[in-house]
């Protein structure tokens, strides 16, 4: 059985259910979307480890594999969060993101023709960067939903759809948690990336566009985290920052990676 195609299909189903659950709005569909997403995460794990010959940690070295891994880790993070039923509405962001991640990262799930040994720092760098990317993605998603929910409340347009989304306070809490842990993981990814470069090239900085873009994204997140925790940034500004920060990070890491 092609586990990769199955993962894509299940995530797509979850995304469709989540979208319908919000559009109709129908809580049962949102619940079904969460169940489908959990099923997708299981199949995704199986597909991933099968593709990487059951190595723990998997020997992910390329960008597609890292994006696929990030999609899986983001889904797992959401499944931990969703134990609080009022956060279920986040599925409308997480399910399509998981599908896109797997779709884009299909190369990382394809069985390796000739498995190669990946250096330990490289493995650590990819794992930490993927986890950080996933959490910052969830923070961005929570931030986007916060802005939608806030807009409907400020415009006095509360309706069934607003009720289907998580409350503002919960979204802000997810945003704060995900951005803090995500930034920490991203920082560790930068450190391990430097160590990998030293081991490989004998110098601190590789000077590649990917490294430069990632450092810029890290600096932006450092500023966001500082303004959130030290300058007591408000929830709305924090949500806007999380969305903008993730857009920059995605452009820096994925965009630079796919550009010729």
């Amino acid at each position: 059985m092609n586990l990769h195609a199955l993962t894509e299909a299940i995530y797509l189903l979850a995304a469709v259910l989540a979208t319908l659950g919000l559009a109709l709005p129908q809580p049962r569909l949102s619940r079904a979307a969460v169940v489908a997403l959990a099923g997708g995460a299981l199949v995704h794990a199986a597909a991933f480890f099968q593709a990487h010959e059951f190595r723990i940690p998997p020997h992910v070295s390329g960008l597609p594999g890292a994006v696929s891994l990030a999609a899986w880790l983001g889904t797992l993070f959401f499944l931990v969060l969703v134990r609080r039923p009022r956060l279920r509405g986040l599925v409308v962001i997480v399910a399509p993101a998981a599908f896109l991640g797997v779709f884009f990262g299909s190369g990382g799930l394809a069985p390796a023709a000739a498995p190669t040994e990946v250096p330990i720092w490289a493995q650590a760098h990819v794992l930490l960067a993927s986890a950080g990317f996933a959490l910052l993605g969830v923070a961005g998603g929570a931030g986007a939903l916060f802005l939608v929910q806030r807009r409907s409340l400020k415009r006095k347009q509360s309706g069934s759809r607003s009720r289907a989304l998580p409350p503002l306070e919960a979204l802000d809490r997810v945003n704060a948690l995900a951005i803090s842990v995500g930034f920490l993981l991203l920082s560790l990814a930068v450190v391990t990336g430097v160590l990998w470069t030293v081991e490989r090239e004998g110098r601190l900085w590789p000077g590649s566009p990917h490294a430069s873009a990632a450092l810029v994204a890290w600096a932006i997140y450092a500023a966001l985290v500082a303004s959130r925790w030290l300058a007591h940034q408000g929830a709305t500004r924090a949500a806007q920052s999380a969305v903008a920060g993730f857009a920059i990070l995605a452009a820096a890491v994925v965009g630079v990676g796919v550009l010729p």
């Binding site: 929910q149 309706g159 069934s160 009720r163 409350p167 503002l168």
Partner: peptide, 20 residues
């Protein structure tokens, strides 16, 4: 029966859209 129709209940429901 999903959405409230009294002003008092609407206020309570709006509070639940803001607070967890």
């Amino acid at each position: 029966a999903e959405r409230p129709v009294s002003v008092a209940r609407v206020a309570a429901e709006l509070a639940s859209e803001i607070f967890e």
